[in-house]
């Protein structure tokens, strides 16, 4: 197992390098650039623009720019934002707690809800409840977050005035748990509803498959209580695919929900990335994409390892 993990990690190095080259090339292929921000500055001259271009290193040939970035990045120097001027690493760390707070809440809430709902709908297949849940999950699965988020804002924020319209806390208020929670509800619900749909579908399908297996019939034949059968025999096995899905979600905890954070003005990594994208702030874009790529690879590895651990039939060489 140890050798397997090591091999996978070594394999991921060229993969990450390849990803970073492609991402860099794509970002640079987008016409325009960060200097567009200076367009409307009164009194700006071409000399100023050229000087700034030089001081940001944007006048270097692209391969040189890439190698410079890479050389610094691997030694822990993630560079400085071209517009905020702060170190990229500290900008990311500044936002990370906010994203973890939002995505972590969603993560836990979805898990707590998905397991009972998925199990019950599978056990009571084709019941009225199953149809209702299936319909709802499909609806939420196919709903874009930007639309759902805006809908929730309009209904609960503007019309009913039950919840705040955005942000993480009321401006000017000292820390207040109730206030924080009220601000969390809408963005968390937006992401959770969409995610919940996917999780419930997975678990339901997996449960249905398991319930039909021979050993379940054996368990029933032994005279076990139905609840024991479902929880101890069926759920345990059916949850294996769910574990892999969860592991694959690890990068999401970091990068956050780009659209949802933007809609709700949530000061997390997603919004940092969004702002950087609109201002073509390359150092931030590269860093966030590099970290999330690494996390995707890591998430995959964890999923594979966890699968092997939970299901002894799978062996790695």
């Amino acid at each position: 197992m140890g050798r397997y993990v090591l091999r996978r990690l070594v394999q991921s190095v060229p993969l990450l390098l390849g990803i970073s080259v492609i991402v860099f090339a794509i970002l640079k292929a987008v016409p325009g650039g960060p200097l567009a921000l200076y367009e409307s500055t009164p009194g700006i001259t071409d000399e100023d623009i050229r000087r700034l271009e030089h001081s940001f290193g944007l006048d270097q040939p692209l391969p040189v720019q890439y190698v410079t970035w890479l050389g610094k990045f691997v030694t822990g120097d993630w560079g400085y934002s071209l517009v905020q001027h702060q170190p990229v690493l500290s900008l990311i760390l500044e936002r990370l707690p906010n994203t973890l707070y939002l995505m972590g809440t969603v993560f836990v809430a979805v898990l707590i809800l998905a397991i009972p709902i998925g199990t019950i709908t599978a056990v009571r297949q084709y019941s009225l409840l199953d149809h209702a849940v299936t319909g709802a999950t499909f609806a939420f699965l196919s709903t874009p977050t930007f639309w759902l988020g805006l809908l929730l804002i309009i209904v609960f924020g503007l019309d009913l005035r039950w919840l705040p319209l955005g942000g993480m806390a009321t401006a000017g208020l000292p820390f207040d748990l109730g206030d924080r929670i009220r601000h969390l509800i809408l963005p968390a619900t937006t992401i959770a509803l969409v995610q919940l749909g996917a999780r419930v579908r997975y678990l339901r399908a997996s449960m249905l498959e398991t319930i039909g297996l021979d050993y379940m019939r054996t368990a029933r034949a032994k005279g076990l209580a139905e609840s024991a059968i479902v929880i101890r025999h069926a759920l345990k096995n059916a949850a294996i695919p769910l574990v892999t899905i969860i592991a694959l979600d690890i990068p999401e905890l970091f990068i956050g929900a780009l659209v949802t954070e933007q809609i709700f003005g949530w000061p997390g990594i997603g919004r940092l990335f969004w702002d950087a994208a609109t201002r073509t702030d390359y150092p931030i874009l590269m860093a966030v994409l590099a970290v999330s790529s690494a996390l995707v690879i890591l998430g995959n590895l964890i999923a594979d390892v966890a699968y092997g651990y939970l299901d002894p039939r799978i062996r790695y060489a």
Binding site: A36, F146, A198, D249, A257, W274, D275, T278, V296
Partner: peptide, 25 residues
């Protein structure tokens, strides 16, 4: 889904930059 977000970025940024452009805006 994190990746999905990133993939949709270009389109979404295009659709919503109404809110965010600095310059000629």
């Amino acid at each position: 889904m994190g990746l999905l977000h990133v993939r949709g970025l270009a389109a979404i940024v295009a659709a919503l930059t109404i809110v965010g452009t600095a310059c000629g805006a």
